[in-house]
Computed example of a mutant assay.
Amino acid sequence: MEGGAAAYNSRTAEEVFRDFRGRRAGMIKALTNDVEKFYQLCDPEKENLCLYGLPNETWEVNLPAEEVPPELPEPALGINFARDGMDEKDWLALVAVHSDAWLLAVAFYFAARFGFDKEARMRLFNMINNLPTIYEVVTGAAKKQTKEKTPHNSSKSNKSGSKTQPRQENTKASKMAPPKDDEESGEEEDEEDEEEHGNTLCGACGSAHDDFWICCDVCERWFHGKCVRITPAKAEHIKQYKCPDCSTNKRARA
């Protein structure tokens, strides 16, 4: 999907999301794990430079495209000029904000070009919104939000006994809902569960229906077991499950 020069009428929300996730991973590497290299490449003495995330989870600092209009929306121009005029952390955070904006622009450029309908655009947005922003990863806000949710995680684990659940018990809302009177709670909870279940999407493939799910203890997203290669038998021996994205982000920040 790099460059957008593909057969447009065959693309899906899931394919655009994979493109988004790959570009996002590359930009996170540039601003965390590869930050020294990124910093050196953004020499203020050079021309206007942009940070590009590529679908194969790599990144590059380069000049913007010469053609107008470009094949894809262009990232923020001239990120190198502010490098020495700001504190490094503030500069990285600013680049992260513009990187988030660019990723959304690219994703919904594809959505428009591929003719997505309302349902497909909503599905794409939900998959994207389940991931922390680059800004949250770079500034540590994503980790802080996770810590603040820890009491809820403990409560949720006590009620469910396990964070690996079949489809009918996989929503956070149903597991975190306050207890109601026994006589009144049955029908109301069933209706609530049915409504919430329809909105739960796998953090990997973006679809809903499956038999076995597992929840990441870090970002609290749900995944089909088969999408993250976790079986019910294997899940019984996992004390704290981290999804592929959270595992990657942790290594990047190390």
Rank of each mutant, 00 (worst) to 15 (best):
N126R: 13
T58I: 12
T139I: 02
L72H: 04
E119Y: 02
G53M: 11
P75A: 12
A233D: 01
E189K: 11
Q145S: 12
P75E: 11
A177H: 07
D193R: 15
F108R: 10
D84N: 11
S99E: 03
H197G: 15
E74N: 05
T171E: 07
E57V: 09
P75K: 09
S185C: 03
E148R: 15
L94S: 14
A25S: 14
G161I: 03
E47H: 01
G4W: 00
C246F: 02
A13Q: 13
E66Y: 04
E184T: 14
R83E: 15
G186R: 11
E74R: 10
S154W: 05
G53Q: 04
L131Y: 06
R221D: 09
T12C: 10
V228N: 03
G53V: 11
S157H: 12
C202T: 12
F110T: 00
R21E: 13
S157C: 07
G26R: 10
F125D: 09
R11S: 01
E188H: 03
E47Y: 00
A96L: 11
R113F: 02
N126K: 15
V61K: 08
K163Y: 08
A7C: 06
A13D: 11
E15V: 11
K226I: 08
A65S: 15
N249R: 08
F223G: 03
K159E: 00
G206R: 06
R113Q: 13
T231A: 01
A105I: 00
C50E: 09
K89M: 05
P151D: 09
S157I: 10
V138G: 02
D181P: 01
I134G: 11
P244H: 05
V218D: 14
P244T: 06
E57R: 09
G115N: 07
Y8S: 07
F125G: 02
L92P: 02
D117H: 02
L72E: 13
E191A: 08
L31Q: 01
I79Q: 11
H98F: 08
L103Y: 10
L77N: 12
S99I: 01
E136S: 13
F81S: 03
Q40L: 05
V218A: 13
P166K: 10
G53N: 08
Y109E: 10
S162C: 04
A252P: 00
P73R: 12
D100C: 07
E195A: 15
K37T: 08
K147Q: 15
E14Q: 15
R251V: 05
V97S: 07
A120E: 08
C219E: 14
G225K: 01
E189R: 13
L63E: 08
